[in-house]
Design a protein around this nucleic acid. Structure first.
Ligand SMILES: [Mn+2]
Ligand SMILES: [Mn+2]
Ligand SMILES: [Mn+2]
Ligand SMILES: [Mn+2]
Lengths: 220, 220
DNA sequence: AATAATTTTTAGATTTACCTAAAAATAAAA
DNA sequence: TTTTATTTTTAGGTAAATCTAAAAATTATT
């Protein structure tokens, strides 16, 4: 049984491990908004418990158990987010902090019944995949909007940035999950992207385009 | 902002205060499954924070703020219990422990929306009243089943014991919330009570009868 | 390869929530 | 009103999770 803190560390390591094999102390510290010294302390404990492999000065990797634990937390986090949006009518930019707490409720039964109640969703309100109870992820094929060429089209199926300002911005532009889009132009001057929606046309900065994920439905 | 522990203490004091004006250290310790010395430590902190009034050796009482905090936790606990039973199909004997964790999730918005989602329930799965967001309880008029005379009838509207074995026992006997009952006999020998239900007749011990709450709908 | 910069760890403290054992206060009984 | 029993508090200590400051190891740069 892990503490909330331990769980948050495992989840952070899990996410960081998507980018680098060995996760470094400083990276964890930054993500967890804490000091490297505190991370070293916690790292030792998690290694002690067999949840991570740790070689001094060489960063950490999750063990099988550690990874499973992390995935379970991710699953809970995302299912609760679906609950908050689908059932309690929260906006997609309002759910993160509450889910951050709810993910630590310890009851397998609870999460299985919640999953069922929600209709076994495959993705959360930000398009992130929800593993099933056997911890299997439905495989997804995303392209960053920024990588599309003029004439390419697809469906918005995710975002790689979860900050409230960013999500509110997208909402205002009408760029929400499930929306069909087509790249109608890319501005030479600043690289901003012109997007055609069913009913309107919007212009977004490169920075925004980087964080919108598209499931391409064929070119042109 | 209070810790989970502080919140649990406040809730415990709130419930104990329904029986005695000044809540004693030992009573709190027993309820919280901890040692009196630990209670004294916590009591000092809560007094320091202005959540309880505390005179050495004389026990404690909740301040206005302390009481409000406690009621908010009770409200959350009971709303989550309704959610678990009504939406996730948990049985009434299975919800307590999970609600014990869920009650600490910190989001006013969450609980207001949950309340609405559940249809602003007035009572939890055990018949305990749920305060509204202004902390007002619907006033309830309960009589213990044990106090009914032969011929008296009423509706089961609550239980004053929440242990799983007790609740399972009632379930098996068909004595669940909302059931119409009539006391058909009281055994001289052991004081056990014979209950007439719409479709059958059951016999319950005095001990059980003490913990069933009836909203009387007139005598005889 | 030596020096400088960065990253990571250790040492030593603090805070929270506990504990046990002993002392002090209060309440009950003789 | 002593004596005894009960309740409560204090004293002193532990474990978890954090911190700052300083030392050590690793990596990058001359
Ligand atoms: Mn969290
Ligand atoms: Mn999400
Ligand atoms: Mn609780
Ligand atoms: Mn209840």
């Amino acid at each position: 049984m892990q503490s909330h803190t331990e769980e948050n560390y495992l989840k952070t390591i899990y996410h960081l491990a998507e980018k680098t094999v060995n996760v470094q102390t400083n990276a964890i510290a930054e993500q967890m908004q804490t000091k490297p010294a505190s991370v070293t302390d916690m790292i030792k404990k998690l290694a002690e418990k067999g949840l991570i492999d740790y070689v001094k000065y060489q960063g950490v990797t999750l063990t099988e158990t550690g990874k499973n634990t992390a995935i379970d937390i991710v699953r809970k986090h995302r299912l609760w987010e679906v609950f908050l949006v689908d059932k309690l009518n929260f906006k997609w930019d309002e759910v993160h902090d509450v889910a951050e707490e709810l993910e630590h409720i310890k009851s397998i039964e609870l999460i299985e019944r919640l999953d069922e109640f929600l209709g076994f969703p495959k993705a959360d309100p930000h398009g992130d995949p929800i593993p099933d109870k056997e911890r299997r992820f439905a495989k997804t094929q995303f392209i960053k909007l920024i990588e599309l060429k003029v004439g390419d089209s697809g469906t918005i199926t995710g975002v790689s940035q979860h900050s409230s300002p960013f999500l509110k911005h997208l909402e205002k532009l009408g760029l929400t999950l499930g929306k069909q889009i087509e790249v109608s132009d890319v501005t030479d001057f600043d690289g901003s992207v012109e997007i055609r929606l069913s009913d309107k046309q919007v212009n977004i900065s490169r920075e925004v385009a980087k964080h919108i994920l598209i499931s391409s439905n064929g070119k042109n």
